[in-house]
């Protein structure tokens, strides 16, 4: 927080302030994004591929470093934090990936437990000394995401796509995050499993009372599950509002005429 702020700022959990990212100078992928995420619930970011949705999400936990502007997490400027401060920021942000990104050769339960890594000193990681509470919580989460505890000692590589994504979600929640990011979490899944995963996300967002930022290209799913939709086109926000406000006109603008249905 800047010292000249007199009154406490409105309680934005996450704030993008004129955020810019250019992989090549002069060709911004994100072109001055300004957004506030103030309330829990599902925020769906939609738009054609290559429009900067992934980059936006990855800037939040700094898997990608922004070129300009600011990102504030619960009032704290995290745009340039480094080292152990960055790791403390990251452990407050859970992330769910399109291709699950589980450590394939580790067991399911160890993948869930890896959500605690940001809280553990190295020697405990070395000896795999997870605390009893963490282990108990990992098993609870396994159930909460709809996986039988019998899966706990299976290798992640033995699971189906939907099961893996459930493990991925459990890992993110294991971090006890104040915010969850999800980068195309259903794009590698069949329609039925996609719906199951979306419902799981909604349930988790509601139970834990945290915002979940989801990139998706499936407008139908977004309309059905999101509390708020952000439409992006060529690095800019072109729609921001509740799903019922989005019209075919908006969608045509976002998707350049067709292809969104």
């Amino acid at each position: 927080m800047t010292p000249d702020t007199m009154a406490p700022p409105p309680a934005a959990i996450l704030r993008f302030d004129r955020l810019v990212k250019a992989y090549e100078p002069g060709k911004p992928v994100l072109d001055g994004i300004t957004l506030d995420i103030t309330r829990p619930g599902i925020v769906a970011i939609i738009g054609p591929s290559g429009t900067g949705k992934s980059t936006l999400i990855r800037c939040v936990n700094r898997l990608t470093d922004p070129t300009g502007g600011r990102i504030l997490l619960e009032g704290e400027d995290i745009t340039t934090v480094r080292g152990s401060n960055l790791r403390r920021v990251r452990r407050r942000i859970g992330m769910v990936f399109q291709e699950y990104n589980l450590v394939e050769r580790l067991s399911v339960i160890e993948n869930v437990l890896s959500g605690r890594l940001g809280y553990m000193p190295f020697f405990k990681v070395l000896l795999r000394r997870y605390s009893d509470e963490d282990i108990a919580r990992a098993f609870e989460l396994l159930e909460a995401v709809g996986l039988d505890p019998a899966f706990a000692n299976r290798r992640a590589s033995q699971l189906s796509g939907g099961q893996r994504q459930r493990v991925g979600i459990a890992r993110a929640i294991m971090q006890n995050p104040s915010l969850v990011l999800a980068d195309e979490p259903t794009s590698s899944l069949d329609p039925r499993t996609s719906v199951e995963i979306m419902e799981l996300m909604v349930e988790i967002g509601r139970k834990r009372d945290i915002p979940i930022l989801i990139n998706m290209h499936d407008v139908g799913l977004a309309r059905r599950y999101a509390d708020r939709i952000i439409g992006m086109d060529r690095g800019k926000v072109v729609f921001d509002g509740p799903p019922e406000d989005i019209t075919a006109d908006h969608l045509n603008r976002i998707y350049g005429g067709e292809g969104w249905q």
Partner: peptide
Amino acid sequence: MSDIPLSAAPSAAQHWKR
């Protein structure tokens, strides 16, 4: 913060070994 009732903790957790 425990949104899931602790009583549901499966006994597997107590006996889990790597």
